[in-house]
Design a protein around this nucleic acid. Structure first.
Lengths: 127, 127, 127, 127
DNA sequence: GTGGTCTAGACCACT
DNA sequence: GTGGTCTAGACCACA
């Protein structure tokens, strides 16, 4: 999930999404301390102001909790994380179904195709 | 399917992909004449040489057929188009399953979720 | 096999052919590193872009394999090279027979003439 | 047999060769009148002086005979034409054998391959 | 008009 | 260093 600057989506929202993914996919755990704004800004290669906005947004969505003087931490409310997971799921499904029905496949065909994939190779040859 | 200049994928390949999508989704028909290289280059906002490369690539993949002095045409070999459709299908499914299993869902959960979507809202909320 | 600029065949295809000959005739070996695009362009006296196209074409035909940042190498798939050799053989034979039958010779006369050449002078008097 | 100006061979000799081919292959008959120097120069797109040299060369080789005030005519000495035919044959064979042995084929293999061509398709797909 | 080729010169990503 | 991409602009062959 690389950042594609110059995409039509604001950079800070792209980073927010990336962070949500990392949390939901279990790469960052509830209660984990996130990197400092400055540190993370350098790592990602954006302006600290942009990263500040990322953390503000995450806090506003109660995905993280910032403690003054200590840093920013992933929420330990599993319920919230579960909701994020459901949101992502729904987004993936919607986008997938839009793509597939655009190709003219019916729900039944789609399900049947997925069914065949059980244990299949996830050969990520996009580029 | 907007062009993301600055993406890591070369512009000419992005345009190739776009063209393939348009053909597979039935927005361009077998035998259709494509815009001229120069015309399309202006429309998309790239250099004619870049667009030339697009047409060359499409020809090499036998997706189009170029007739010197006349223009470039979508192949009328329905078989080829059908293959493209299958390729896209497989790519969408692979990518989708990678995403979903990354979130920890099993094939059964995924199928069950899709099943619930029958007649559901295909609300294109990507942005 | 000199380059005939002004021939009707594009320069880049002439160079591709030359390279194929060099490989098939055993002047370049499987796995060999080719000269760099820029270097070879200077040597042959064409624009680097033209030479780039040559390497691209060779790669597309799987005659060479390009490793980013390292260079372009003759394929080590002997099978591919063997196929090229057969192609060249067929082309030479076809062209030769077209010429000879154009002069009114029958296959039998042609074979008989070649037969007499055994150990004969291969006196390259083309010019 | 197109003319490749800028080849290493002088243009006038290229035209001489072309003329010889036309005679030997039976496209011009013994006794035929050739176009006038000026006429033919225009047709081929060369300077009349160059074409003059062509006719002089053909006359010198006794392939044509120029009659002042009447024009230039293909020799009606069938013997001479027969010799030309033999020369061309030898040249084709030498060149062919050089090519084939360069690819590593033996005379026996070559003959065997030609033998298989009897009634074969002469598919002239060079360019 | 159409596509095809070539040059010149720039910038990028990878090692 | 390596190859890969893109632009700009020119000229050609075909119909």
């Amino acid at each position: 999930m690389p950042l594609h600057f110059q995409s039509d989506k604001p950079i800070y929202l792209q980073i927010v999404d990336t962070m949500i993914h990392e949390i939901v996919r279990g790469r960052r755990f509830p209660g984990d301390k996130l990197p400092s704004v400055r540190e993370y800004a350098v790592e990602v290669g954006v302006n600290p102001n942009t990263m500040q906005r990322v953390y503000r947004e995450l806090d506003a969505r109660q995905i993280t909790k910032t403690k003054r003087g200590q840093g920013t931490f992933v929420t330990d409310d599993e319920e919230t994380i579960q909701q994020l997971r459901e949101q992502l799921k729904q987004r993936y499904i919607d986008s997938f179904l839009t793509d597939m029905t655009g190709l003219g496949f019916t729900i039944e065909e789609i399900i049947s195709s997925i069914d065949k994939e059980k244990g299949g190779t996830s050969d990520d040859s996009n580029q």
